[in-house]
Design a protein around this nucleic acid. Structure first.
Lengths: 203, 203
DNA sequence: GTCTATATCGTGATAGAC
DNA sequence: GTCTATCACGATATAGAC
């Protein structure tokens, strides 16, 4: 029988994810986490010792989810050109389901320096991915524009993540309600995909 | 003789800009602002009444600076194609000089809803800009791809602002020091510019 | 206007009964 | 393991002397 995580502990953890991702370390309140979990405040300390320790767990899980979950896609058995729209599609879905996660991760990284980044070895995972190799390969054959592949990946995630980060402002400027927001994002997916692929192939 | 702002008041204000933009409303401490300004803590209350009131002033100035300062560029007497690299160049410089500003603005907007956005009428300023009109014009003439112009502007700022927002992570993944970061951004400016212009013209 | 001292309150954390 | 009560501290804010 697999080790089953204590029920209360899981409730606290889920509540903490919600509150920390929404408010950040500085803005989050232990009381709010307790309320969200439907339990007593002192339970938080019983299970996690301190706010700092609870935060670290939440942050590391969020960081891994944010970065690591796209990795399988990068290493699929298809061309880089097929991967681009799939990566974008994946992030659009991910961001819709976890609207506060990227902002939270980026925010806390800014505060607590790179300390955390070293724990998750993104740099190698990303740089050595099949996707990156494929790009370098086609660049070597002069089939696509020769350019730092990190710039390409960055262009992809910038184009799709930033609108979610700036969602309130984007909705306000473009005068979107919830329905037209979804349309806007659908349109966006094609645009980002088209921009990146066009740019690589037309040179 | 023009109204000269009190010296202490200005010192406090400048210090508050620095601390609030760096730490956000929740993370900022009145003591830290006082230290930064080199004055006593109670002076903050003497001049600005409360943390909340001080914050509002700092935020509104930051918001206007973030959004409004690009407007003149959008209304220049040149083509949209000439404007694109200029806008990017402008933001790159702006972000280098104000590294914490965009993150701060986007962060606080997320917390305090759109309440603030209505005070600054970005939507009309941007939508009615010459840049947007020029795009719509060329779309009408089938000279460029027909698409929501907001998506174009969003692509530009996503491509250049996001890397700064995610700077620690980007530096870590791409293994950049301060010098190579600058090179990376220079390369980036051309890429974003090229992607947007290519995409509009090749269809 | 500027300082020191202090009030007031919110929050993380602990003690101890059950 | 879970609760109530309480501590200890830090942060905003104010009072009052100069």
């Amino acid at each position: 029988m697999p080790e089953t995580v204590n029920d209360t502990e899981k409730q606290i953890f889920d509540a903490a994810i919600k509150v920390f991702q929404r408010k950040g370390m500085a803005g989050a309140r232990m009381q709010e986490i307790a309320d969200e979990a439907g339990i007593n405040k002192s339970m938080l300390h019983y299970y996690f010792r301190s706010k700092e320790k609870l935060f670290r767990q939440i942050f590391l899980i969020s960081l891994k989810k944010f970065i690591g979950s796209v990795v399988p896609l990068l290493n699929e058995q298809n061309t880089w050109e097929q991967k681009v729209p799939l990566i974008i599609e994946y992030y659009a879905k991910f961001l819709t389901e976890n609207p506060d996660l990227p902002f939270f991760v980026l925010s806390e990284i800014r505060n607590n320096a790179e300390e955390f980044l070293s724990e998750v070895k993104i740099e190698d995972i990303l740089i050595n991915s099949v996707f990156m190799e494929q790009l370098k390969n086609d660049m070597g054959k002069e089939k696509i524009r020769r350019i730092n592949p990190v710039q390409i990946f960055l262009s992809i995630i910038s184009g799709i993540i930033f609108p979610f980060i700036a969602k309130p402002m984007v909705k306000h400027v473009a005068k979107l309600d919830d329905n037209s927001w979804n349309e806007f994002i659908n349109e966006r997916k094609d645009i980002v995909s088209g921009m990146v692929i066009n740019y690589l192939k037309q040179f």
